[in-house]
């Protein structure tokens, strides 16, 4: 019953988001074009870097392309489907959170799905392209089982990114403006576009256990490479995601008690 309601609601919101983002035709076209240029130039950079080194942390060019694909996919899905999580602090600051609080659906859900970023769509496409190029450059066997786990890992990864952002943005209930802190933590995610084996063990532990961004790219890639050493982390990914989402939800509800809607609104 509840699930059905949320699915219906989500489809409605998605339709609304698409309508909104296409209501300014020029801006939409420029946005798509700009994102394409960004991705193409970053692809060239990557090719140049990997042309100058043979292996990075024990992974060759083809494997690194796959890693990049694994990095882009959850990021793209998060940006496309759950992008509005980034505006929690904006809504807290301006008081537009009031509107979500007086609707009969989960506040966090309503807020998060109320907006989309076309960028996410382009990132997802690029991620798939990276994966295909990676598979061409390596000779890895990909069976049904791996595809299923890849999908699970990608979705879990998107939810991990989402939860960490919720944690950071929820701090705005106490400090009002926290976007810079969120950006800071999120920039840690830049690290996991490279194999985490190149980092100091301390940083590796940090990315696995404290701010678990390692689950959003590296452990889905190692699944494809048949690296048994990391298999337990791969299988842990959906559970990490579930725990993170529940924690984020609790933390958000806790922060809400401290919400002081600005006056004059």
């Amino acid at each position: 019953m509840a699930v059905k309601k949320y699915i219906l609601l989500y489809s409605g919101m998605l339709y609304k988001n698409m309508r909104e983002s296409t209501s300014y035709k020029l801006d939409f076209a420029v946005g798509v074009f700009a994102h394409l240029i960004i991705q193409i130039s970053s692809l060239f950079c990557t090719i140049i870097v990997y042309n100058n080194v043979d292996t990075l942390g024990g992974f060759d060019f083809g494997e690194c392309l796959i890693l990049l694909g694994c990095y882009l996919l959850p990021m793209g899905i998060e940006e496309f489907f759950l992008h509005n999580v980034w505006s929690i602090s904006k809504h807290v600051h301006s008081g537009s959170l009031d509107g979500y609080l007086t609707k009969p659906a989960n506040t966090l859900f309503l807020l998060v799905v109320d907006g989309t970023n076309i960028h996410g769509f382009i990132l997802t496409i690029c991620g798939i392209i990276y994966l295909i190029f990676g598979f061409i450059n390596t000779n890895i066997y990909v069976g049904c089982w791996k595809v299923i786990w890849l999908v699970i890992c990608v979705i879990s990864g998107a939810f991990i990114i989402f939860s960490i952002t919720v944690f950071m943005e929820t701090l705005s209930f106490w400090f009002t403006e926290v976007t810079n802190a969120t950006v800071m933590i999120d920039s840690l995610r830049q690290l996991v576009r490279y194999p985490i084996t190149i980092f100091h063990p301390f940083l590796q532990k940090f990315l696995i256990f404290v701010v678990p961004y390692a689950y959003t790219s590296f452990f889905s890639a190692t699944l494809l490479f048949d690296l048994d050493k990391y298999m337990c982390y791969t299988y842990a990914t959906p559970f990490v995601a579930m725990v993170m989402v529940m924690g984020a939800k609790k933390f958000f509800a806790f922060g809400l008690k401290n919400y002081s809607s600005p006056c004059g609104s």
Binding site: K5, L8, L9, G12, M13, K16, R19, E20, S23, G95, S96, D98, G99, T102, K103, P104, A105, L110, G264, S265
Partner: peptide, 26 residues
């Protein structure tokens, strides 16, 4: 209703806003 701020979606036709509310309120 808060007089200072609309609860409806800024860029959406009024009709569509109502339809969305229909979904939210079931």
């Amino acid at each position: 209703v808060f007089g200072h701020r609309t609860q409806l979606w800024w860029d959406l036709p009024v009709k569509d806003s109502f339809l969305l509310l229909k979904k939210i309120y079931e």
